[in-house]
Design a protein around this nucleic acid. Sequence first.
DNA 1: TCTTTTTACACAAACGTTTGCGTTAATGTT
DNA 2: AACATTAACGCAAACGTTTGTGTAAAAAGA
Lengths: 344, 344
Amino acid sequence: MSSRITLKDLAKKLNLSPSTISRALADHHSIGEETKKRVREKAEEVGFTPNSIAASFRKKKTKSIGIIVPRIDVHFHSRVISGIEEFAYKTGYNVTIFQSKDSFVREKEITKILQNRMVEGIIVCLSIETQDYEHFKRFKKLGMPLVFYDRVPSSLDANKIIVNDFESAFTATEHLIKNNCKRIAHIAGSQNTDIFKERLKGYTAALKKHHLKIDPDLILPTNNLSYEEGVICANKYLEMESRPDGVFCANDYTAVSVIQVFRKAGINIPKDVAIVGFSNYPISGIIEPNLTTVNDRAFQMGEAAARLLTRQIEDEENYIGSEIITLNTELIVRESSIRKASNK
Amino acid sequence: MSSRITLKDLAKKLNLSPSTISRALADHHSIGEETKKRVREKAEEVGFTPNSIAASFRKKKTKSIGIIVPRIDVHFHSRVISGIEEFAYKTGYNVTIFQSKDSFVREKEITKILQNRMVEGIIVCLSIETQDYEHFKRFKKLGMPLVFYDRVPSSLDANKIIVNDFESAFTATEHLIKNNCKRIAHIAGSQNTDIFKERLKGYTAALKKHHLKIDPDLILPTNNLSYEEGVICANKYLEMESRPDGVFCANDYTAVSVIQVFRKAGINIPKDVAIVGFSNYPISGIIEPNLTTVNDRAFQMGEAAARLLTRQIEDEENYIGSEIITLNTELIVRESSIRKASNK
DNA sequence: TCTTTTTACACAAACGTTTGCGTTAATGTT
DNA sequence: AACATTAACGCAAACGTTTGTGTAAAAAGA
């Protein structure tokens, strides 16, 4: 209720000028040690906390960054955000989050909100609907640093943090091949999204390298890689005359549903068919058999995004608007894909 | 790089005073419709976006709220945050997040950061280490609205959003009893935390009501209800001479491990022993058999917290510092607890 | 001892908005 | 026709900090 104590008030109490107080609190060299101590003590005594809005206003620095994610409660994103927050906290930034809810219009609305100096930079993972990037181009004009992660704009020259989806999918598929799989299926994500296109490419490339036939019937597309879609795909595989003996799934949810559907049908995993997922969701370590999957390094992705963003914020002169950082994944081999036959 | 266009610049271009521009953009009644249109069009043309820091500074309103959570990549919290963000977005607030990482000192540091008018109110879930609430009392003195959720300070008079843990545990346990369980075990959370104390109380109360013996050996305490701790507890139950025929677990992770350990030991679930968890984590709907659990209403909890907080921010006169809102949970009955014997 | 440098502080402007009040012209009221 | 009301806009102060510059006294150099 009562208006808080200001730097001026503190100055009056100490018979000093506001500028001295400001500098004393900032540990400026031109203020005497004795005075600094007096100021600090009095500030503590009267409970003075500087008005950071006024400071931001004056300094033209808010020390805060914005994040736009499709949804916060998707585990992948919450881990990325955690990485961002961790890095930001250490470097004195704070993070403001918005969720686009995978809506293009909401994403645009959010960018409007963020254009007014509230944040010094933005980290974004595109909504699934987004095909047009006009609303992000404005940030470039405004000189506001921008970093995309995971779902990045293919046609836009920008900072991007991605994972080597192609190679990840390649080694995941090759892992199945090495485990004696001959007919390897793939449950694919939406082909409107680059990352899922890359995973499909990596899958086919691995088959090609090892001279395995690429059977289009074994490649099943999905919209959002949901658990339910995974069940449908699994059932399709079950009905086939010659079933696959290995399945590379573009995420863990669909992999889990394949495991469950197959098991219920009396199929032994990994003996009859080996399964590999993608993303290393918590469930992958719990489901039985434990799921082989690729660690997508979500936390590191967040850190990398925050690091790149803050560097661009602080290095105004060497401002590079289009750096692409590719993170290396790691195949976590667990029970679901190890077949004694060729366990190398 | 180039300093952005300001309201004053816009005023010059239009031969109007800054005040008129400001009011025109705010759709003030004392500005002519014709003028408003001119202003809006010119603003659009030159790409003027108001400096919200300056506005916040002048109006003394930042329209933003802060959140302190233990970790944002814990699913429960990310859902709460999602609920907060959703409500905040609709009402024009934006949210800044901090994670305490369950560290008391970091929590204190964060509260220091938040004391400087950056946010107009704070929503917090206490770190597991926090026993002393002195750092939150300062907010009361400063008149800064504060709302706790889930892990709330027991000895502090404050706004709290909680779930009726006692009743939830009671009905969960009673559900087991109705399903013909006679020896019901309980895997309990840390008894330093109120919510887990309440769940234990609800469990014992249900047993008492139905005249079942309360066997202390069946009540196993844990530190953080992790999957691994669940495995340990499950093995202890296995080794008992007279095993439980029902287990009420204080969360879903431990429930899942009990299911898996028991199944591996050849025990049929739910026929031999029925299991109930708590929180309705995604895995509860996937694990086989599907886990009966209580929906903890995380998203609604976030909404309720945000609603209460914004009301207190905007109703300065009727400021109530200690409202307690209890959300009702819902028992989601699935396979893991349904025994044909007394399936009512 | 006189000048130069350093130390330690004060002055005042500035950041970009918002808002109470004042002013003019147009409209409405008797 | 004289007055009251309203409509539409301008003036100027204010929000609380930071920072370039000015200045006095103290210390150092000659």
